[in-house]
Design a binder for these strands. Sequence first.
DNA 1: TATCAGTTTAGAATGATTCTAAAGTGTTGA
DNA 2: TCAACACTTTAGAATCATTCTAAACTGATA
Lengths: 130, 130
Amino acid sequence: MNDIKQFLRSNALRPTKQRIIIAGYLFDGTNKHVTAESLSTELAKRKHTISLATIYNTLHDFYENGLLKKLTLSADRVYFDTNTGDHHHFYSEKEQFLIDINKKIKVNGLPKTPKNKKINKIEVIVHLDK
Amino acid sequence: MNDIKQFLRSNALRPTKQRIIIAGYLFDGTNKHVTAESLSTELAKRKHTISLATIYNTLHDFYENGLLKKLTLSADRVYFDTNTGDHHHFYSEKEQFLIDINKKIKVNGLPKTPKNKKINKIEVIVHLDK
DNA sequence: TATCAGTTTAGAATGATTCTAAAGTGTTGA
DNA sequence: TCAACACTTTAGAATCATTCTAAACTGATA
């Protein structure tokens, strides 16, 4: 609890009730993939009612501060990942199936990066079916 | 024109006025990346007014028939790619910058595919910055 | 050419996300 | 401890891409 407060403060985030609850859930040591909606549902199960607007705000605040990764897997919702390390994903759109690939992956054969640009990150998504 | 009709027919798509116009634009020999909106704008420039609903329908019809690839690059719009071959992309969300990587890319070090699933496709997105 | 299934369309509906602006709350300095 | 203020939260409205509806239209077929 106090460590969560410290954690938030050390990331320039005022430790409000809501942020403490959300951070407590997200950063409990196990990696998670959440959407605003799934997070809201999860918190509701724990009898915490935080407005959706705040959930969106908080996810973005955490993201802006590098505490979450944003995943663009399907066009109809945004996923946030508590695993901020360099990693990739198995994903099934149909089944909402999503798991981390933590093994080091090498991408070979990339062409020259376009002029005046630089690579920000390389995202590998392995789409799965049944 | 008649070749476009044949082309549509051979893909089990009735060659309507609208589909002929859209196919004529999309499959003119140069690879294109479009969104419903950008396609609508492009057709409007050519004095073709086709309702947005039809544009959405047609893009999906073409996609369902394997004439287009669907790209999931950002959460706020869907891109369709006339290059249906196996390839990847450079992408800048900020600049709406999107180019094909046609060179063969190798992804090494993938872990075992999860039980009872199979790989549908592997998508590599190289995110660029300035 | 009549018929009918497949298409197009305007406009409404949907759903995720963002915005607004008013009320609430950490933080700071005295 | 507390006043004061900047930062947050929130309900509800607004936005925006996309899908849906159901009525009018049009290729294809006999």
